[in-house]
Design a protein around this nucleic acid. Structure first.
Lengths: 312, 312
DNA sequence: CCCTATTACGGTTCACGTAACTATC
DNA sequence: GATAGTTACGTGAACCGTAATAGGG
């Protein structure tokens, strides 16, 4: 059969299913649902007019036809994998790919990358922003661990927000995080000014997705509790998809934001944002840096530099 | 690299392009446009961070990286092709797949297949109707020969209307064709009746796509010329997508049709259609039967039977 | 100027997922 | 009833095509 008309996807599904003798297990390996595997096998069977599996109660059995082609099939994919690995050897050595959440990228990473590039002019940085939740939602069959594994496999450095990821890779905690209330200094003056914590109820509250959805209580709920303020509607106010957007709104004086001050260093230094009260709640979540074990020196260099830069 | 994340389509494109050292030639082999190949190669290059081709003025050159993986890649696809061929050996022997144009299927093949099935009860017939023109139009990159080749590869028997196809397969002419004017006998009586050829101008003319588009002159133009009738609007009248529909309209007395009487045997025998004049134009086109060389006995049996049945 | 590859943009198909169902233990 | 595979149906993304562009002889 000619290369141009090989049903590659179906063959791959068949190879994996034959190896596991289970569509379910094959689906897990392929990061899809059993339905998809069933489709592919069915397509292959009807395209060829050959039955490949005997459907037993649990699990499957290979037919003679299936057995007859299994070895070349495995060799085939084995060879393709080999070819890919051979190519990987030639990866451009100068590029360092980093994957990080959007707000981290925008507010912590991008402002300081020039420092690293100054130290390592031979490196080309390739920064990708990725969010875990939409990614997971779109690929229902993937469990979280395998998604992270995939990210670590395709990026040199991965930055995550959350708990310590249970992966067998190099993991470093970048910095402990806390949240506090921040706002434009303009809101501290004039009519309706913010003078004591209880005054927050007179001003708009700004939220971002992570502050609302991560963990049990929203960032605002946590802060209100720490401030000893009761509110029946702790999540009222404007909502933004990214912390960076909520922060920008706060800078424009549109309201009060509860976020981690680490994301607002420049604004706090300039005074365009201020922390009016000394009420701060430590977060269990943190930023973690992941990298493959045995990664090349430039990756270690970057990880070391980033840890240092953010620790300051 | 793991099987589940092999970019199979891109790898295939690369293998073919590397073999030809030309995206254009690769595109032809893959039955796609050069654009598609360019996309695939680009995707592979950027996914790996490896440049695979040096783009020269005309044609391409392989980079060291590309050369390093080419052999395993070829072996890989070679093995997959082998595996597919191994499976083909196990094809269900009972089914016989036939591909034919719609009107041929409806008016010539279906009415008589029961005869064949009576002779060969062990065979399951699988009849597909396919039209060449829309198929070709939808896949611009495929030339006619390769489409036909594909059809012959995927069907045991292919019936075509047209000139003798220049393919290296078994080709038989099923029957010489001619066209003549047919109509319901009702139109030969009463007011405005059809008594001499010139009377045709007083009645609606029925056309089908093939009669209008095949070759230089439409069926009606040819017939009018043979009848010695001048018409400034030879293609006026009702149009149908298939000859079978035009014929049915003629049976209902809706007008005059110029078509091949072979498609109307039953109606001519019953007298529900008549050929009022003895003006017949032989067609250069004909129905041809194609089958793979060395096809199994049941295919030869079908071909023999069909030739015989239609020759009567 | 011609030939080949690339890019932007838009469309179609194919692979996939959800949900409901079937079958077997 | 639990588990695994199947089927119907709808959706999104991957793949591809058209048209316009680049670039090199």
């Amino acid at each position: 059969m000619h290369v141009s008309q090989l049903p590659l996807t179906a063959l791959r599904a068949f190879e994996v299913a034959a190896r596991h003798l289970s569509f379910k297990a094959a689906a897990a390996e392929l990061h899809v649902t059993p339905t998809a595997v069933s489709h592919q096998i069915h397509q292959l069977e009807s395209m060829l007019g050959v039955v490949l599996f005997e459907r037993l109660h649990r699990g499957l059995a290979l037919t003679a036809a299936a057995r007859s082609c299994l070895q070349p099939l495995r060799n085939g994919f084995e060879n393709l994998a080999q070819a890919m690995d051979a190519l990987s050897e030639f990866r451009e050595m100068g590029v360092l790919s980093v994957s990080a959440p959007p707000s981290f990228t925008l507010r912590l990473l991008m402002p300081i990358t020039h420092q690293f590039l100054a130290l390592h002019p031979e490196v080309d940085l390739n920064v990708t922003t990725r969010m875990r939740e939409p990614w997971l939602a779109s690929r229902s069959a993937k469990d979280e661990a395998s998604v992270l594994r995939e990210w670590v496999d395709t990026s040199d450095v991965v930055i995550l927000f959350g708990g310590k990821p249970p992966l067998d890779v190099e993991v470093r905690e970048l910095m402990p995080l806390s949240i506090t209330l921040l706002c434009s200094p303009a809101l501290l003056e004039g009519k309706g000014a913010l003078r004591k914590p209880a005054d927050v109820s007179g001003l708009p509250w700004l939220h971002d997705e992570r502050g609302l959805k991560y963990g049990g209580m929203s960032f605002w709920q946590q802060w209100l509790r720490a401030a000893g303020i009761e509110s029946s509607t702790p999540d009222r106010g404007h909502r933004f998809t990214h912390a960076a957007l909520a922060i920008e709104a706060a800078v424009r004086g549109e309201g009060l934001v509860v976020t981690t001050p680490a994301l607002c260093r420049a604004e706090l230094a300039h005074g365009t944002l201020v922390a009016p009260f000394d009420i701060s709640v430590p977060l269990e979540a943190s930023y973690y840096l992941l990298a493959r074990r045995g990664a090349p020196p430039r990756v270690r260099a970057f990880a070391d530099w980033l840890c240092g830069a953010l620790a300051r």
